[in-house]
Write a protein that binds this DNA or RNA. Structure first.
Length: 278
DNA sequence: AATATTGTTCAGCA
DNA sequence: GTGCTGAACAATAT
């Protein structure tokens, strides 16, 4: 058996959005999946949602990780005794699997001690992430009113188009809204619109069907190209905006200049030359 | 030392 | 009710 190791490279500009969570899922599957939990250390209880550290530890003890799935920016891990572990990575969260004798990572908040001499740590410098135990994944998605997952076979072009019918806001705000479509954050919304050559604050109702379709196509392309190299930035396509997300940087598509604009506390980066205001 | 950073949630407004 | 905007929140790096 070949042991495939997926190393998640934590890089500054890469916040945990859909592609990152997808890679966390792969990482989890190659490391902790099917292992038994001997003990859980909760080193910071503020990342637990709706459950006490004590109860979390008791319910996880002697559990086994059965299967995983991702929806939007959430990772779901099914346990053998019917409960589901939910993980959200906030803006700085990630997973680290390492041998017992190795040093725990800095800002580690919670550790699963496994029965094979390894540990799986949930690391989160800023405490925006969360872990919880739930009974039903569908109920969780409905409770959080999440829109369709952005990178799923169910979201075909027709469904995508319907999501935006009758909406008035700007396109960037809409695709970042988890209730409209789940999985896209600030960085990847910029990336998708950059590739689709659309000005981020274009109002949805002025976009043509052709432009919307371009957004749909580029969205899938961007996710594919980010996930394939395990979101390692230096293996991204050369024309990705992600490594050039700085004011005054040179646009990797047209050679134009990268600008930024603040909107509702978020900073959008775009190329003023090939993402023209309409 | 002040500022920028993020996803989610929620109050307030049209 | 509905959809949208903007602010608050936490904690850190720079």
């Amino acid at each position: 058996m070949v042991f495939i190791r997926i190393v998640y490279q934590k890089n500054k500009k890469n916040m945990p959005e859909l592609p990152d969570v997808e890679v966390f899922e792969h990482y989890f599957n190659y490391t902790a999946l099917h292992k038994k939990v001997e003990k859980v250390n909760v080193d910071d209880d503020s990342i637990l949602e709706n459950i006490s550290p004590r109860s979390f530890q008791m319910r996880l003890k002697d559990e086994k990780f059965k299967s995983t799935s991702r929806y939007g920016k959430y990772l779901f891990i099914e346990l053998i005794r019917d409960e589901i572990l939910v993980i959200h990575f906030g803006m700085t969260g990630y997973l680290k699997y390492y041998k017992n004798e190795e040093k725990s990572p800095e800002y580690e908040k919670l550790i699963f001690n496994l029965n094979n001499g390894f540990k799986l740590a949930y690391v989160c410098t800023r405490k925006f992430g969360l872990l919880s135990l739930i009974d039903n994944q569908q109920d969780f998605i409905e409770k959080h009113e999440l829109g369709p997952d952005a990178y799923s076979d169910d979201l075909n072009w027709n469904n995508f188009k319907k999501i935006f019918e009758g909406r008035r806001g700007s396109i960037k705000t809409a695709i970042m809204n988890q209730k409209i479509i789940a999985g896209i954050g600030n960085v990847y919304s910029d990336e998708i619109l950059f590739q689709a050559k659309i000005y981020p604050f274009s109002k949805i109702d002025i976009l043509s069907e052709k432009e919307l379709k371009e957004i749909y196509k580029k969205m899938n392309w961007v996710f594919k190209k980010a996930i394939e190299p395990n979101v390692e930035e230096d293996k991204f396509p050369k024309k990705f905006l992600l490594s050039h997300r700085d004011v005054g940087a040179k646009c990797p598509i047209c050679g134009g200049t990268i600008k930024s604009e603040k909107y509702s506390g978020r900073t959008a980066y775009y190329c003023e030359d090939h993402q023209k205001k309409k």
